[in-house]
Design a protein around this nucleic acid. Structure first.
Lengths: 142, 142
DNA sequence: CCCTTTACTTATCGATTGATAAGTAAAAAG
DNA sequence: CTTTTTACTTATCAATCGATAAGTAAAGGG
């Protein structure tokens, strides 16, 4: 297998990942928030505490737009901003209790779909999948 | 490792995939098209020929919106619709020569970034990555 | 042959989004 | 101690997008 064929496989793979995650996000997200806001909450949930700049970088949104969306999420009481005492320009952003509840609910529902999809897998298979995720994250999607 | 930990890893993984692919799409896509249109072209490139319904399903867009975006892409002469002789309600959608050229250019640039990222890998590592992609596609992202 | 379903189109409308300009306040650099 | 840079905010505006209603034309089923 040459490098070009591997690359084609990589592209097709990313298309599949997008298809599946978008499907899950659609099923799972509350109607109180938009898809963009859901993705921001998901990122915060996975990486908290985060700064606004980090969200902006990771989501590839401009700072003004990130700030606006975060304001909306704060107004909906789904996340909180805590000033950094070391550097008062910065703020650490975390999910609020309500945000945690919403995301836990969403994650549980995705997890149910994930479990259903992965099926009754053996511990060996689980390890295999885990190793594959680790490998790709380390070498490709870092 | 329990199933929940694997699930968390899965979520973090999908966030990474999104981050990387969005970054690449931003770098690579022509300003003549929107991000949504770029993703549609990418899907067509990987799966052609496709029907409008398939694009609609895979991209999780409604048929009217898919039809509209496809019309825009046709007007830009980036894709073509060919009626199916078996079932004249259907149409097969393909990239036009211009669309192929645009996507080949985009893919080449992504491939360069991919190669840079994967680095000078050994054939063994390449096989490992390939197997990981295959495994995850078969068991998780199908 | 009619009725229903499938595949797709056209049109409309409000909400979300992205881009940009301009500003604040704190930290770091000179 | 002034200047610059960093981190973030506020405001504005057009473009895009998602959702919905209504329609066409071909295929399939009874």
């Amino acid at each position: 297998m040459d490098s070009n064929a591997l690359f084609r496989k990589f592209v097709a793979f990313t298309v599949s990942v997008h298809e599946m995650t978008n499907e899950m996000a659609k099923e799972v997200r509350s109607e109180a928030i938009t898809l963009v806001q859901y993705k921001i909450l998901q990122y915060i949930a996975v990486s908290q505490p985060v700064t606004l700049s980090e969200i902006s970088d990771c989501m590839h949104m401009s700072m003004p737009n990130t700030s606006r969306e975060l304001k909306k999420l704060s107004e909906k009481q789904l996340c909180e901003k805590v000033a950094d005492n070391e550097d008062r320009r910065k703020q650490f952003i975390r999910l609020s209790a309500k945000g945690e509840a919403m995301m836990n609910d969403a994650f549980q529902r995705i997890e149910a779909r994930f479990a259903e999809r992965v099926g009754a897998i053996s511990p060996d298979e689980m390890k295999e999948i885990e190793r594959a995720l680790d490998l790709l994250r380390a070498k490709v999607f870092y």
